[in-house]
Design a protein around this nucleic acid. Structure first.
Lengths: 212, 212, 212, 212
DNA sequence: TATGAATGAGCTTTCATTCAT
DNA sequence: AATGAATGAAAGCTCATTCAT
């Protein structure tokens, strides 16, 4: 087939690339496996992306943008701090179910071996998250929901740590397995997501000094 | 030099391998760079380890055992729940300073691209942690330090998530940078570790319903 | 633009191809760079030429024909042997200035890596040159300008060798540099062309036994 | 065979590389064909040479050094100018017979597409030749063998042009064929080398104003 | 038994050529 | 009939693994 790649095919490349990069990381993923999975030739990938790392970058952008959008939405539409937490937590569980690759890309950039440029890019992401949380906490403090004593910086950090791990726990093999172990699930049995969500909200609110 | 490798040399291989694997991951690390760093020949590494993955496994064992021992000690010698938390948190910050490689190995296995067997091995580790924490919490509940209402499983999970991220934040490049961003440190300035430790203890105790 | 290629466009392909082939050789020249330079599509080049080698052949033809025509003219219009030499030498210096690509094509076919058929083609060219010179020398001998003792074959060969190198020395990078070195020119300074022309005429006439 | 490459094998690489580079040029020669021809693996070539171009450079050095040595010897041992010419011409015919690859390497660097560094290297070579000839001519002038009127620079240039072409005519396919055409040999018949040598000496001496 | 150079499979990338429009 | 994006074979290069010493 020598017709111009359809939008669907272009997306297919990106999605399969995200899948593979998330699975195996930058180094172990081969361009030709992405090409095969996407049903296109190797050469055309190099028409769209300068090289493997450039494709990796594009996958990151694609993933992070979607991830960011989803989180932002969760916060934006919330009336109270507690509701924001509930929505964030919920999204962190639901999102990976349908977008495993995106979470795994996120996880992938935490490796030093990820493309060097990924780090700069990541800084951008984290800076956005950090600011978003701080705003959220400041608002909550102003609204009297959150004790003024709480150190926003540190709190945001622990808060994000937990959400990040929650994300990973529903998107990355290793962390999924770990979750099952901690929850003492039987082999392969899915963890009780709703219960865990509720527990995390409780945990976070307790930490924040909010009575459930 | 045709004499059997000394114990020191064997450890050297392991330590340098941990260093390199932690730095660059399984795929990007070359056996010959490990050999060079360790001052031994490539060939002898293959006498001691079946292949690169096998060496990776050995590094994992070595790292995880040490890590496990350190954490266990912190818990064992603690009189109260709060003290245990304080010691754990402290150890999670101090340990990576002198043992970056070990933490990074831990991080490395969370990648699916890590040796397939790493996952099985990891299960062992996490199972131990999970049980340790549960024991700790049960004891605390029995001692009346911890509310009986708390779900030990989920709590242990969040608890470990935070410690894990704390670990990474002092040992892995990406997470170190992220920590600096969240704490709003200047470029390259080291974060206030003591302050953060304290904040985490406070956070955890609050979450556990313990008044500071 | 779906109309048949104009003659100008067809020539443009040829001229740009000559330029690129002369510059980089057959192997290093890409068809798409020729297409881009010529302002046509890749596909249409394959409509006019079977493949890259075929295009190379066409470039050779185009170049060699022009070259042959120019040399022939120089000889035809000359009254004496000496004048013919003078005109030939002059043309060998002047022509490359405005037609670098053509000379370089000539140079290119001397590489075995040039298209295999180039060799056959080249035979044709050289046969024409050889005969032309012989005729020229026979005429000169008959006119008493040239000693009858001179071996026309060998003389024509050396004669052409010198002209060929003269050509290259004003058209090919390597030979241009070499000329500057031999003439001891400063860096980048252009050689004294007129002086060298004169010297070559003197050299050739002396070799031919003609007193200047 | 995993023993260290013998000197013979190392030379084999160089010689086969010279053969192939001379034949097909830098671009069309593949490292694996050199490896196959030399009976070694691809990898080991990259142990000895940084990359294909580096190997090309090494071949140039190897060839040019030998070529330079041979020419120098011819001049050094000669009593008179005429003898020097005779020896040089002879060597230019004899040498390529047993060292075709070397001549072809020389020819190869005259292509602009040759490794960029080759040009710098070539300057070195030509500078040496140019000086050698000038010395030779100055000596001959001092000895009264050569007319003082002759421009040493230009003369050396034409002189070297003829020797270079002589070289190529006995070493490079295209020029060999061309020689046969000029000498009017039958298809495939070898040219009368001795006769041509003699003719070239006569030609050169006549050009130099030396009576034979 | 350790050595470390050689092996060669496998990956990234390029580009001559094709073909749906 | 021209276009120019897609194809995929082929090349350069790396590095896990082997084995003669």
């Amino acid at each position: 087939m020598l017709k111009k790649l359809t939008k669907a095919q272009q997306d297919s490349i990106l999605e399969h690339a995200i899948e593979e990069f998330g699975d195996k990381g930058l180094a172990k993923t081969t361009v030709s496996s992405i090409a095969a999975a996407s049903g296109v030739s190797v050469g055309v990938i190099y028409k769209y992306y300068k090289n493997k790392e450039d494709l990796f970058q594009a996958c990151l952008n694609y993933s992070m943008e979607m991830l960011g959008r989803v989180l932002e939405e969760a916060i934006r539409d919330s009336a109270s701090f507690r509701e924001a937490v509930e929505r964030l937590v919920h999204v962190c569980r639901i999102f990976p179910e349908s977008h495993k690759g995106y979470i795994r890309m996120y996880h992938a950039i935490t490796m030093k071996s990820a493309a060097d440029h990924a780090v700069d890019f990541a800084k951008k992401i984290e800076t956005i998250s950090a600011r978003t949380y701080e705003t959220m906490f400041s608002k909550a403090k102003a609204a009297g929901e959150l004790s003024a004593e709480i150190d926003s910086h540190a709190f945001a950090f622990f808060f994000d740590n937990l959400l990040m791990m929650f994300h990973f726990s529903f998107g990355c093999d290793y962390y999924e397995e770990r979750l099952r172990i901690f929850l003492n699930c039987g082999d392969g049995a899915p963890p009780d997501g709703d219960g865990l969500e509720h527990a995390l909200v409780t945990f976070l609110c307790a930490a924040a000094g909010i009575r459930s």
